[in-house]
Amino acid sequence: MVASLACGTSPALAAAPSATVSADQALRFGSFFTDTSGTRTVSATGSVTGSAIVPLTGTAPGPAQFTFTYDRGNNANTNYSLLIAVLVPGAASQISGGVTGTIASFDTDLPGVSALVPGQTAQVTLTGCQRRICSRTFRVGGTLQVARTSGGAELAIPVPIVVTVLAEL
C-alpha cells in the first residue's frame, strides 16, 4: 500500500529544481573616438546615444543578451510564476593603456525593472511559466564612460550577472 502510493505521486520523485543563466551576446558599444572623455549608451532596446564621442565604423552597437532557464524538477502541468533577483555584482571597468572604460549603470528589458544598479538586486516576477522548463531571454544595456589620456584600446569588460530564484509562485 505504501509502495503504490509513492509511485503514483510524481512530486515525490521530482528532481531538484535548478536554474541557469547563459550569456548569449555581449554588450557591444561599437567603435568610437573620444578626445579625453566621453560616454556612449546602448539601451536594452538597442537605442544608441553618445556624449563627447565620434562614432566610427566597426561592430554595430547592441545590448547584451542573457537567457535564464529554470527547471522546476517535475512535469506538473500547472501555471506558475517565478520571483527572481537579478544582480550585477559591481561596476564593470577596465584599464587598457591610456584608456579607462567604466560601466556604472545598466538597464534591462526584464519586466518591471528599468535600471540595474551594480551591487543592488532587482526583483523580477516572471509570469506565464507552465512547463517544467521555464526560460526567459532578456537584454541588458549600459552606459560606458571612457576616459582617455593616450592612444586607443579594445575593451572587453566582464559583466557578471547573478540570478537567484526567490520563490516559485
Partner: peptide, 18 residues
C-alpha cells in the same frame, strides 16, 4: 519543490573599440 535560493551566474562581456 519551489527552488528558492537557486542561484545561477553568467559571465557576460561588454565590448568597445576606442
Amino acid at each position: 519543490l519551489a527552488a528558492t535560493g537557486q542561484t545561477a551566474t553568467a559571465l557576460g562581456q561588454a565590448q568597445a573599440m576606442i
